[in-house]
């Protein structure tokens, strides 16, 4: 059974409907035993990191979630919860470099969730459809684009690239648009972070868009609201 963790986010029904559209049954639960027995777990989340963590602690789900061995997909705030700590809800005042007063998260991956950098002409929240670039196979994709007409065999190479990439990305073209809504982000820093599968650029910020670390996966965007590519991603996840 696919369990959606009842973390109190308002996007839970949209996720359920998206799963129904790909003919996948799901159940909403905040019960640790039930979640531990799941085949797949989706961790949604809309709202603040502090509110979501308070709820997970209240239902005693922190250790349960950390100990899961089945495929887990965090969506939006749910992805951020997989990291170690967040500036969101930091009453000390969100100083860029300070981590003091941050909200503790599930700490599956050691990285801080930060507020998007304010820049002239940049609107926050980051709301809308943004292009996600794959980390793996990026150079091949670029050359395939440039020399498309002369070298049709590169199209073959392009699909090979996808198969080499993480199964979560199967059949999703590089540079696809996904729907984002968030004010906090995890810096992709792709040279250092092997868990980043895809990233997008928003002003100066390089946003981790899709991540995977063992059985823990996450996307910053909303696959349930990202049209066809979002459905494919959910199908890929439920097929794992």
């Amino acid at each position: 059974m696919l369990i959606i963790v009842d973390s109190g986010g308002a996007n839970i029904s949209s996720i359920r409907y998206a799963l129904e559209r790909i003919h996948m049954d799901s159940k909403l639960s905040a019960d640790a035993d039930e979640i531990a027995r799941a085949d797949h777990v989706i961790l949604p989340g809309v709202g603040t990191a502090r509110a979501a963590m308070d709820k997970l602690r209240r239902y005693e789900l922190v250790e349960c979630l950390r100990g899961l061995a089945c495929p887990v997909l965090g969506i939006c705030l749910g992805m951020q919860l997989l990291f170690s700590h967040s500036q969101e809800g930091n009453k000390a005042g969100n100083k860029a470099e300070s981590e003091e007063g941050d909200v503790d998260l599930l700490n599956i991956l050691p990285q801080q969730v930060k507020k998007l950098t304010a820049e002239p002409g940049k609107t926050i929240p980051h709301m809308g459809w943004n292009q996600v670039d794959w980390r793996v196979g990026e150079s091949v994709e670029k050359s395939a684009r440039k020399e498309q007409s002369e070298q049709p065999d590169l199209a073959q190479q392009k699909s090979t690239t996808h198969h080499k990439a993480h199964p979560l990305l199967r059949n999703i073209p590089d540079h696809s648009y996904f729907y984002f809504v968030h004010s906090y982000f995890v810096d992709a820093n792709i040279d250092a972070n092997a868990h980043v599968l895809g990233y997008c650029q928003y002003g100066r910020d390089q946003v981790s868009a899709i991540i995977a670390h063992d059985n823990f996966m996450g996307c910053q965007f909303h696959p349930e609201r990202s049209g066809d590519v979002g459905s494919i991603l959910l199908k890929n996840f439920t097929g794992l």
Partner: peptide, 11 residues
Amino acid sequence: IKKIAQILDVP
């Protein structure tokens, strides 16, 4: 609203 949410995969 529910019916729209069921069919739509855009926000």
